[in-house]
């Protein structure tokens, strides 16, 4: 707006001049308009120049409008409960969508997921077998906690089983990375292990109810 203020001032000045010319006919003679008319050929042609300038400005204004667009407030949407993710939603997104390329190369997201699964597997084995932490840890490391080789390989340590080649191929055929496949299998196996304990008649809160 401020940049256009001189234009408005100029416009007002020209308007004042026009009024002056209209009210005092003598003033008009002082401006050499006749020469301009002669140069253009006729007074009509001179008006056409004005009109053309105006039409040119139309293009400029329309262009600016197309670029600028409008501004308006975006009020909040209070109609619904402010959503929060479900427990485990991060895990689902990592397993479902994988991690980004940058994260794959430099991040520790995969190791965090693996560490978390390893810890949960240990805890669950402790709960199932009613054994100490060391024993459970050992069983997870060497992969004897489950029959599922993919799951065992995923959370197992260096001494544990290595993932079967067939699983890697199957995962690749389904369009998943080995990481996604392994993490999913490990999670399912941990959940299964946990449930098995309950069906074995273990003490669980739900049973007490």
């Amino acid at each position: 707006m401020r940049a256009r203020t001189p234009v408005v001032v100029l416009g007002v000045a020209v308007f004042a001049l026009a009024l002056g010319v209209l009210l005092t006919p003598g003033l008009g003679g002082a401006i050499p308009v006749a020469d301009a008319v002669d140069a253009a050929g006729s007074d009509y042609k001179l008006f056409v120049v004005f009109g053309a300038v105006a039409l040119l400005l139309v293009l400029v204004v329309v262009g600016l409008r197309a670029v600028g667009g409008q501004a308006q407030a975006t009020p909040p949407d209070p109609e619904h409960v402010r959503t929060a993710p479900a427990p485990g939603a991060e895990f689902d997104s990592v397993v479902g969508g994988g991690v980004g390329l940058r994260e794959q190369l430099f991040g520790d997201e995969r190791e965090r997921v693996r560490g978390r699964l390893r810890e949960t597997a240990t805890q669950t084995v402790m709960r199932r077998e009613n054994c100490g932490r060391e024993t459970a840890r050992e069983r997870v490391e060497n992969g004897t906690w489950t029959d599922d080789r993919d799951a065992a390989a995923f959370v197992g340590g260096e001494r544990g089983p290595s993932p079967p080649v067939s699983s890697r191929v199957t995962a690749a055929l389904r369009g998943r990375s080995w990481f996604q496949h392994g993490a999913r299998r490990a999670a399912e196996e941990i959940v299964g292990t946990s449930d098995r304990r309950v069906t074995d008649g273990g003490r669980r809160t739900e049973d007490d109810r």
Partner: peptide, 13 residues
Amino acid sequence: FALFGAAVLLLVG
């Protein structure tokens, strides 16, 4: 001329 010029200038302003 002056009137028309003023109109254009004011519109742009």
